[in-house]
Design a protein around this nucleic acid. Structure first.
Length: 373
RNA sequence: GGACGGUUACCCAAGUGGCCAACGGGGACUGACUGUAAAUCAGUUAGCAGAAGCUUUCGGAGGUUCGAAUCCUUCACCGUCCA
C-alpha cells in the first residue's frame, strides 16, 4: 500500500503512480477541493466523468460541522459523500492562516473561534490526526502553520512549530490505511525552505508537501521556493504542492518536479462567473458575450463546451441560475484535469519541454475575449 | 365641474431654500479571486475631463431669492375622493 512508482522522467518532471486503498493516482494529478465533503456544485458522478482521481476535504470545516465522529458513524468520508476514489484531507493548518483574526497559537496547538457560531475550538497535531482518522481519507496531512510568506521572523517560528508538530503527528497516527504527508514551510526564504525540506525529508513520510505558497508572494518567489525545496525532497516520494492552482502554475510546478496539486480556484472562479482556459480567463458575465454563440473554448471537449454557448452561460449568470456554477465548474475542472493528463502524457512521450513551452507561450497571447474583437 | 395627492437619474424611491450631481434599493457595467469564513468581495452608473475642475439636470414654461429639486404663478399628465 502507498507504493510510489515513477514511470517516466523529463528533466525534473516525473510521471508516476501512487497506490492508495481507493485506487492509483496517476501523476501529475490535479485534485478538486471539496472542503465540506462536496466539490461545490458538482456531483461525484460528474467528478468521475471529468476523470478526477483525487478529491480533498477539510479537517477544520468537517470538525465544526457535522463533526468527524458523525462522519465516522456514517461510514467514513468516502461512504458519506459517495466518492469512491482516493481522498485527501487537509489538516486545518491552512485555517490557522486564513482565520488569522480569530485564533491564538501556542506551542501545543491553536485556539480558534468557530467561524460558524463563534464558539471556542482547538486544533493541535493530536486533535487534527484524530479527526482525520475519523474522516478516513487515504492521504492525511500533518498539522502545520502557514505563515505570512514575507515575514521572516514569523516564517521561521511557524516553520519550527510545523516541524515539531510534524513529529507529533507521526507519533499519534494509528491507521495503517492512511498515508500521512509532511509539509514543508519557510515562506519565501531559501534558507528556511531548505532547512524545512531537510527536516521534513528526514521524518520519512510516504509523501511530502510544499505548503505556504500561493498566499501572496510573487510568481518568481513561488517558483524559486519550489525549486529550492524539490532539490532537497526525496525523489522516491510523491511531492504535493498545496493550494496551486492556475494552469500556468501547474505547468511550472510539473517542470520543477511536483506531482500533486489541489486548488479551489477552478470551482471558486466558476461560481464567480469566470472561465479558465489555456489562453487565459473569460469573465462570462461581460456584455460582449451576450450574443456569442461560441462555447467557452472551441478546443475544449468538456460537457459544457460541447453543449452550451457563451450567450447561454451569460444568461444563466445574469439570471442567477445555479446551473451556471455547475457548468462553469465542469469546464474549469476539466481544463485543469485535462492539463494534468496532457502533462503526464508529454512526460511519458518525452516531449514535455516542447509541450510546456507551447502552452506557456499561449498565456502571453491576447485573451480569447480580446482576440475576438 | 370641484377637492386633495402626485410627477426626482435606466426602474423604484429619499430629499421640501444653501452641507445636492442629489440618501437608499434594484438593474446594468467592470474588476478581483491559488491547501474555500467566498453562489463572495470591490468599484462605476448625467456629460466632458476621468486628480483637481468644468458644463447641463429633479414633468414643461415663467417668476421670487445672493442662492431653488425644495417657495410662487401657470400649463401638461397621473391617482384618489365628491358631484
Amino acid at each position: 500500500m502507498f507504493e510510489w512508482q515513477v514511470t517516466a522522467r523529463s528533466g525534473k518532471a516525473r510521471a508516476g503512480a501512487f497506490t492508495t486503498p481507493h485506487g492509483i493516482l496517476k501523476t501529475p494529478v490535479f485534485a478538486p477541493v471539496g472542503t465540506q465533503a462536496t466539490v461545490k456544485a458538482i456531483t461525484p458522478a460528474q467528478l468521475h466523468e471529468l476523470g478526477a482521481q483525487l478529491v480533498l476535504a477539510n479537517t477544520y470545516h468537517l470538525h465544526l460541522r457535522p463533526g468527524s465522529e458523525l462522519v465516522a458513524e456514517m461510514g467514513g468520508l468516502h461512504q458519506f459523500m459517495q466518492w469512491d476514489g482516493p481522498m485527501l484531507t487537509d489538516s486545518g493548518g491552512f485555517q490557522v492562516f486564513s482565520l488569522a483574526e480569530t485564533r491564538r497559537i501556542d506551542e501545543d496547538g491553536v485556539n480558534f473561534k468557530s467561524h460558524i457560531d463563534g464558539s471556542a475550538k482547538r486544533l493541535s497535531p493530536e486533535i487534527s490526526i484524530a479527526i482525520q482518522e475519523n474522516l478516513g481519507a487515504d492521504i492525511i496531512m500533518a498539522f502545520d502553520e502557514c505563515a505570512d510568506p514575507r515575514n521572516k521572523t514569523y516564517s521561521a517560528e511557524a516553520m519550527k512549530r510545523t516541524h515539531a508538530w510534524a513529529k507529533r503527528c507521526l507519533k499519534v497516527k494509528k491507521r495503517e490505511d492512511q498515508a500521512l504527508f509532511g509539509i514543508v514551510q519557510g515562506g519565501v526564504f531559501d534558507d528556511l525552505r531548505e532547512e524545512s525540506a531537510r527536516f521534513i525529508s528526514s521524518l520519512n513520510f510516504p509523501g511530502n508537501a510544499i505548503g505556504g505558497l500561493s498566499v501572496g508572494e510573487t510568481k518568481e518567489e513561488m517558483y524559486r521556493s519550489i525549486e529550492v525545496v524539490n532539490a532537497v525532497l526525496p525523489e522516491d516520494k510523491p511531492r504535493y504542492l498545496m493550494g496551486v492552482g492556475t494552469p500556468e502554475d501547474l505547468i511550472e510546478g510539473v517542470l520543477r518536479g511536483v506531482d500533486i496539486f489541489d486548488c479551489v480556484l477552478p470551482t471558486r472562479l466558476a461560481r464567480h462567473n469566470s472561465a479558465m482556459t489555456l489562453q487565459g480567463r473569460l469573465n462570462l458575465m461581460n456584455a460582449v458575450y451576450a450574443k456569442d454563440p461560441a462555447p467557452i473554448d472551441p478546443d475544449c471537449r468538456c460537457y459544457t463546451c460541447t453543449h452550451f454557448s457563451r450567450a447561454y452561460l451569460r444568461h444563466l449568470i445574469n439570471a442567477r441560475e445555479m446551473l451556471s456554477a455547475t457548468l462553469l465548474s465542469i469546464h474549469n475542472l476539466h481544463t485543469l484535469l485535462q492539463l494534468a493528463r496532457d502533462l503526464r502524457a508529454a512526460i511519458q512521450q518525452g516531449n514535455l519541454e516542447d509541450f510546456a513551452a507551447a502552452a506557456l507561450e499561449k498565456f502571453s497571447l491576447p485573451q480569447p475575449s480580446e482576440a475576438k474583437q
